Amino acid sequence: MTGIVKWFNADKGFGFITPDDGSKDVFVHFSAIQNDGYKSLDEGQKVSFTIESGAKGPAAGNVTSL
Score class of each variant (00 low, 15 high):
Met1Leu: 12
Met1Gly: 07
Met1Asp: 04
Thr2His: 07
Thr2Ala: 05
Thr2Leu: 09
Thr2Gly: 05
Gly3Asn: 00
Gly3Arg: 00
Gly3Ile: 01
Ile4Glu: 06
Ile4Thr: 14
Ile4Trp: 09
Ile4Phe: 11
Val5Gln: 00
Val5Phe: 02
Val5His: 00
Lys6Tyr: 04
Lys6Gln: 05
Trp7Gly: 02
Trp7Pro: 00
Trp7Lys: 04
Phe8Thr: 02
Phe8Glu: 01
Phe8Ile: 03
Asn9Phe: 07
Asn9Ala: 08
Ala10His: 14
Asp11Asn: 12
Asp11Tyr: 15
Lys12Arg: 12
Lys12Tyr: 11
Lys12Ala: 09
Lys12Ser: 08
Gly13His: 04
Gly13Ala: 03
Gly13Cys: 04
Gly13Phe: 03
Phe14Pro: 00
Phe14Asn: 02
Phe14Gln: 03
Phe14Lys: 02
Gly15Trp: 01
Gly15His: 00
Gly15Asn: 00
Phe16Asn: 02
Phe16Val: 06
Ile17Leu: 07
Ile17Asp: 00
Thr18Ile: 15
Pro19Val: 05
Pro19Met: 06
Pro19His: 03
Asp20Asn: 08
Asp20Trp: 06
Asp21Thr: 07
Asp21Met: 06
Asp21Ser: 07
Asp21Val: 07
Asp21Lys: 06
Asp21Ala: 06
Gly22Pro: 03
Gly22Tyr: 06
Gly22Leu: 06
Ser23Trp: 05
Ser23Cys: 08
Ser23Gln: 08
Lys24Trp: 07
Lys24Arg: 13
Asp25Lys: 04
Asp25Trp: 04
Asp25Tyr: 04
Val26Tyr: 05
Val26Thr: 03
Val26Gly: 00
Val26Asn: 01
Phe27Gln: 02
Phe27Glu: 02
Phe27Ser: 02
Val28Met: 05
Val28Trp: 02
Val28Arg: 00
Val28Glu: 00
Val28Gly: 00
His29Cys: 05
His29Gln: 04
Phe30Val: 13
Phe30Lys: 12
Phe30Pro: 02
Ser31Cys: 09
Ser31Asn: 07
Ser31Trp: 07
Ala32Val: 10
Ala32Asn: 08
Ala32Arg: 07
Ala32Lys: 09
Ile33His: 03
Ile33Leu: 09
Ile33Lys: 02
Ile33Gln: 03
Gln34Ser: 12
Gln34Cys: 13
Gln34Val: 15
Asn35Lys: 13
Asn35Pro: 07
Asp36Asn: 11
Asp36Glu: 14
Asp36Arg: 10
Asp36His: 11
Gly37Asp: 09
Gly37Asn: 10
Gly37Thr: 10
Gly37Val: 08
Tyr38Val: 12
Tyr38Gln: 12
Tyr38Pro: 12
Lys39Asp: 05
Lys39Trp: 08
Lys39Ser: 07
Lys39Met: 09
Ser40Lys: 14
Ser40Phe: 13
Ser40Tyr: 13
Asp42Arg: 14
Asp42Met: 14
Glu43Val: 15
Glu43Leu: 13
Glu43Gly: 14
Gly44Asn: 06
Gly44Gln: 04
Gly44Val: 02
Gly44Ala: 05
Gly44Thr: 03
Gln45Asn: 07
Gln45Arg: 06
Gln45His: 07
Lys46Gln: 09
Lys46Met: 09
Lys46Glu: 07
Lys46Asp: 04
Lys46Ala: 10
Val47Asp: 00
Val47Tyr: 02
Val47Pro: 00
Val47Glu: 00
Ser48Leu: 11
Ser48Asn: 09
Ser48His: 13
Ser48Tyr: 13
Ser48Ala: 13
Phe49Asp: 00
Phe49Cys: 01
Thr50Asp: 08
Thr50Gly: 04
Thr50Phe: 10
Thr50Pro: 01
Ile51Lys: 08
Ile51Trp: 08
Ile51Gly: 03
Glu52His: 13
Glu52Lys: 11
Glu52Trp: 09
Glu52Phe: 14
Ser53Gly: 10
Ser53Ala: 14
Gly54Gln: 12
Gly54Asn: 11
Ala55Lys: 13
Ala55Ser: 13
Ala55Trp: 12
Lys56Phe: 15
Lys56His: 13
Gly57Glu: 04
Gly57Lys: 07
Gly57His: 07
Pro58Leu: 12
Pro58Lys: 11
Ala59Cys: 15
Ala59Thr: 15
Ala59Glu: 15
Ala59Trp: 12
Ala59Pro: 02
Ala60Tyr: 02
Ala60Glu: 01
Ala60Leu: 02
Ala60His: 02
Gly61Pro: 02
Gly61Leu: 13
Gly61Cys: 14
Gly61His: 15
Gly61Asn: 13
Gly61Tyr: 12
Gly61Val: 15
Gly61Arg: 15
Asn62Gln: 11
Asn62His: 10
Asn62Phe: 11
Val63Asp: 02
Val63Ala: 02
Val63Trp: 00
Val63Ile: 05
Val63Met: 02
Ser65Lys: 15
Leu66His: 09
Leu66Lys: 07
Leu66Ile: 14
Leu66Gln: 09
Leu66Tyr: 07
Leu66Arg: 09
